[in-house]
């Protein structure tokens, strides 16, 4: 099969799978809800109908959140891996999420009321991600080794984690609970009325990314050759980190810090598509990311009757071995 046909085939299969997973996810909660209730809950919503209420307030937002968070985190991971030319990069392991966590922790628990609003939470999470994004960008300019950058990111995470713990120690039980819930990572916190904002920011970031494809494609040649091909490396770095931080900041604000998705999914996508073309990888990664989170969250939904598993338990169980696999395969 020529590579072009192969890509078309893969995209077809993945899109079909995504549609299937979306439906399975929607219909896999504890309470049975039929298709007409889903349609009505959007088109002619009746508050007094429990099925419609659950569909509108829980199922649909949760499914869309899985879709966006999976795609967005994976895209953020792909951008970082391409920018740093490092398969071990990702918004979680390099501490971008930690930046959001720190800023959210500080604002939630040190008690500024503005930050308890949606807009406040979003803004703090994004600003935190941007700040930490630029910290890791500066480190990346001095560190050549892939593993060293990963270690710095993880240490940044530990360091920030310690500060967060210190903040937690000095805070009231109620504020602590809200924050702890948030850090578990969950796709259930997004409300129906928050979806437009989430969708808007997500698609803005994706559209911005389209304009970064061309220089990011060239980066596979190394930074020097990229500059000689006429690209402005400084601008590319800043824009890429900004888009990455917006994506992961917004997702972190809505879902809490989700581990490893951003690192694992782009690597799986590269192995599946066998290309370095950002045109292909961009869409492939987003599809795979949505599929991945929908899959994981469907399992969580199915288990809910018996026990409640935090999202990060699953993503870590799958993500951590993938990192080890990459290190052994590429670095050993």
């Amino acid at each position: 099969m020529s590579s072009k046909n192969r890509y078309s085939f893969l995209f077809l299969v993945l899109s079909f799978a995504l549609l299937l997973f979306m439906l399975v996810h929607l219909f896999s909660g504890q309470l049975e809800i039929n298709l007409s209730d889903f349609c009505k809950s959007i088109l002619e919503f009746d508050k007094s109908n429990t099925s419609q209420l659950i569909a509108r307030e829980f199922r649909i937002p949760r499914m869309i959140t899985a879709l966006l968070a999976g795609a967005g985190l994976s895209l953020a991971g792909l951008l970082m891996q391409t920018l740093f030319n490092n398969p071990l990069a990702g918004p979680y392991v390099l501490g971008i999420n930690t930046g959001s966590s720190l800023f959210v922790a500080a604002s939630m628990m040190l008690g500024f009321s503005f930050f308890i609003t949606d807009a406040g939470l979003l803004l703090t999470a994004v600003v935190g991600a941007i700040v930490f994004g630029f910290i890791i960008l500066v480190f990346s300019l001095f560190v050549r080794s892939h593993v060293a950058l990963l270690l710095i990111g993880l240490m940044l995470g530990s360091f920030t984690g310690a500060i967060i713990t210190a903040i937690q120690a000095t805070t009231s039980a109620q504020q602590l609970k809200a924050f702890t819930m948030w850090t578990m990572g969950s796709l259930q916190q997004t409300r129906f009325d928050q979806l437009p904002v989430f969708l808007f920011i997500f698609f803005t970031a994706v559209i911005l990314t389209l304009f970064l494809i061309k220089p990011l494609n060239a980066l596979v040649l190394g930074e020097r050759s990229t500059e000689i091909l006429g690209f402005n490396l400084k601008r590319l770095r800043v824009l890429t980190i900004l888009v990455t931080a917006i994506l992961s900041g917004v997702i972190t604000a809505f879902c809490g810090p989700i581990a490893f998705v951003g690192l694992a999914v782009p690597n799986m996508t590269k192995m599946l598509f066998k290309t370095t073309s950002q045109h292909i990888l961009l869409f492939g990664t987003m599809l795979m990311g949505s599929l991945f989170l929908l899959f994981v969250d469907t399992i969580i939904q199915l288990c809910e009757n018996h026990f409640l598993l935090p999202l990060n338990v699953f993503t870590s169980i799958i993500g951590a071995p993938i990192i080890i696999f990459i290190i052994i395969k590429r670095m050993a």
Binding site: I213, K214, V220
Partner: peptide
């Protein structure tokens, strides 16, 4: 030296040399 890149086919590699002439999206 160019150490080669996994999954980057020769043709795609040489095509990157066309970057100065391609459109905004690098097609």
């Amino acid at each position: 030296s160019f150490s080669g890149v996994e999954f980057l086919a020769l043709e795609d590699y040489v095509l990157l040399g066309r970057s100065p002439y391609t459109d905004t999206f690098g097609r």
